[in-house]
Simulated scan of single mutants.
Amino acid sequence: MDVRVQGGAPPDPFLSAADLLTTEHELDHPVRVRVRDDPDERTWAAHYDDHHVLNISRQAATSAMARELALHEFAHMARYEEGHASHTQSTDEALFLALSGQSVERRKLAHCYQIANHMRDIYADDITIDVAPGAKLIQFLESELAAAVADAPGPAGDRPSGAEPASTESDPDITAVNAAFALGLAERHDLIDTDHRLYDLARAAAADAPSIGVEPFKHRFRSLIDDPSESDFRRDLVAVTKAYALGNERAAD
């Protein structure tokens, strides 16, 4: 696997991630790692005819999670190369099918794209958890969720222990879906026990977003089929989009 790091960051985390990936998967195209100074854009992958690009912020590239973040993006690249339906189905097409003729808030529409990314993340992390321990990933998800829950509108006394408030309020609705994603991924791979703190955080997130059904969303993420056809994935993406944007998931809870 050909990996070249541009931007002055230490190459070791990226080479280590590549070594992990190649124990089970191989990329046909080379990867260019571009380290960027914008800390708000943590990581994202781009795909071209003859190569992939892993864009990563300098902050992320030099963090304790650098290897795991790189491995996650390499897994997306592997899914793309294998033509996995989650990475070939157009999000725009599915959202059009789900929301045609409906009036949807702009923030909700933006959240729908984030939820589509979560569905792709499930399939990428099926690879990452297959080739590397999932403990650091769970710690990362727990930390992200704790910050979002602490940051949500509401009395500080309602926040779970250890959840420190941040500077900008989070959106409770998408935080609840993010909690469902974290639990769905963790349960899909048996990574946590029933008393894990993620469950406490998810309950707090659900309380902050009473119109969102955390359990049904968790079930959707956890039960995504391993090798969907494009029709399968489009159906699932349309269904979860309707559930979130049109507010009918709570009724199924």
Rank of each mutant, 00 (worst) to 15 (best):
L224Q: 11
P30K: 02
K108M: 11
P11S: 09
A207Q: 11
A182K: 10
D173M: 06
L71K: 03
A45S: 11
L237Q: 13
R188P: 04
A75D: 02
D208Q: 04
A182R: 03
E215R: 07
D232A: 12
D190H: 08
G247V: 05
L71D: 01
L224F: 03
T62F: 08
T91F: 07
H87K: 13
I174A: 12
F14P: 00
V214M: 02
H189Q: 07
A179C: 04
E142T: 15
G101F: 06
P10T: 15
A186T: 08
H196R: 04
H111R: 08
D226T: 12
L224W: 04
S16Y: 00
A75I: 00
A180D: 01
F74H: 04
E82Y: 07
V31K: 00
A70T: 03
L27I: 00
E142C: 09
L191Q: 07
F181C: 06
E142S: 10
D200P: 02
D92P: 11
N178Y: 03
R79E: 08
E68S: 12
L183T: 11
E142G: 10
F221Q: 05
R58Q: 09
M119S: 15
A206H: 03
H189R: 07
E82F: 11
A150P: 01
A17P: 01
Y199D: 11
M119R: 09
L246A: 04
A17E: 00
P13A: 05
Y123P: 03
R79A: 05
F181Y: 07
E215N: 06
K242P: 05
P30V: 00
A239K: 10
N117Q: 06
D193N: 12
P216M: 07
R34S: 12
P216Q: 01
D190Q: 07
G154E: 02
P10I: 06
V104G: 08
L97W: 14
E169H: 13
A204P: 01
A245R: 14
A239G: 14
G7C: 15
T88N: 14
A180S: 10
E169M: 13
S57H: 09
A252G: 11
R220S: 12
T175P: 01
Q139R: 11
D121T: 08
H196V: 12
A18S: 08
A156I: 14
E93A: 11
D193K: 13
